[in-house]
Amino acid sequence: MYQVLRPSHSTFETLRGVRLHLRHWGQPQAQQPPVLLLHGWMDVSASWQFVVDALRTPRLCIAPDWRGFGLSTAAHLDVAHAPPPYGLGDHYLFADYLGDLDALIERVNQRLGRALDAPVDLVGHSMGGNVAMLYAGVRPQRVRRLVNLEGFGLPATDPAQAPRHLARWLDELAALRRGDIVLKTYRGRHGVAQRLMKTNRRLPPERALWLAQHWARPTDPTQPDGEWVILGDVAHKVRGSQPYRLDEVLAIWAAIEAPVLAVQASDDSLAQWFPRGEHSLAEYHRRLQVVRHCRIAHVNDAGHMLHHDQPQRVAELIEQHLA
């Protein structure tokens, strides 16, 4: 199995009524802000381990499990003993990730003896990259530099689509209540690793086995070779209730003051997700033009999980940009 070079330690912080799990690497460095690493949808904070191990210069890195992922959940639930799914409700609002990040930055700064609004560096992957971009536009004074790994945003919606969008959201809530929306289970840690490698053909077995123990857990702790379930609330599979309002997103991106590095993999994930052209890399590049200080970098021989496929290259790009 993968051998960790820089072990992490965990803490828990209750923010906005949610018990968030935080993974920490390194120690505070003089004249350097902490780096917050923001994972993507149906992922966990441990996903950053390979990149942290590849950093040449140690930095204080802190990665939360977003609400309802990993070991983060509602404050009144103990995820160490409560069987999944461990829900915060029947759906999630994207704005809550911004609220959680805002409160987290204040708490991290408080713990480090910094001013509550002292700027930090943000690195986000996929959903985490989208959160980071929005946050940097809403709270520009709190972000020094930003690295966005494949946080492409979503296809633009038309206001006329709102009735159908909300109707489909209600239908999915009903399906969740009926138990029609579920998370798959896998046989043992090796079964979880096989699932990860099926999604990502470049993921080596030793990394997949290491990730499996953080990405999922046995439904019965006394049967480690039995069924394992993903550490994520099934309610995350319900679509968001709000349409993607591109005009609002672009207005927020235009307010970003921090230098932004937008990193994309050689595999075109958008072409796979939206084969009918609802969203594309060309459209994403057009959107990035509203960001005042932005450059684009590419990672070869990598897919959407580029921080797993090429952690050394991703770490190099992060270090260059944060320097």
Score class of each variant (00 low, 15 high):
198 K>G: 13
233 D>R: 08
298 H>W: 14
40 G>F: 05
256 I>G: 01
87 G>R: 15
37 L>G: 01
191 G>K: 00
215 W>E: 06
41 W>Y: 15
185 T>C: 10
40 G>Y: 05
286 R>T: 11
106 E>A: 13
52 V>E: 06
287 R>T: 02
292 R>V: 09
94 F>G: 07
203 L>V: 02
104 L>P: 06
153 G>A: 03
126 S>F: 02
104 L>G: 01
28 P>V: 00
212 A>S: 09
184 K>R: 14
239 R>G: 13
287 R>Q: 13
41 W>P: 02
142 R>G: 03
112 L>H: 07
171 D>R: 12
89 G>A: 09
285 H>K: 10
224 P>Y: 04
271 A>V: 02
236 H>S: 09
180 D>H: 12
89 G>W: 08
283 E>F: 00
9 H>P: 07
303 G>A: 07
272 Q>H: 13
208 A>C: 05
63 A>D: 04
278 E>V: 07
293 H>F: 12
65 D>I: 10
39 H>W: 05
296 I>T: 13
166 L>G: 08
38 L>N: 01
299 V>Q: 01
148 N>T: 01
197 M>K: 10
30 A>P: 09
127 M>S: 01
250 L>A: 05
293 H>W: 11
157 T>M: 14
278 E>A: 15
285 H>L: 12
33 P>R: 07
268 D>Q: 08
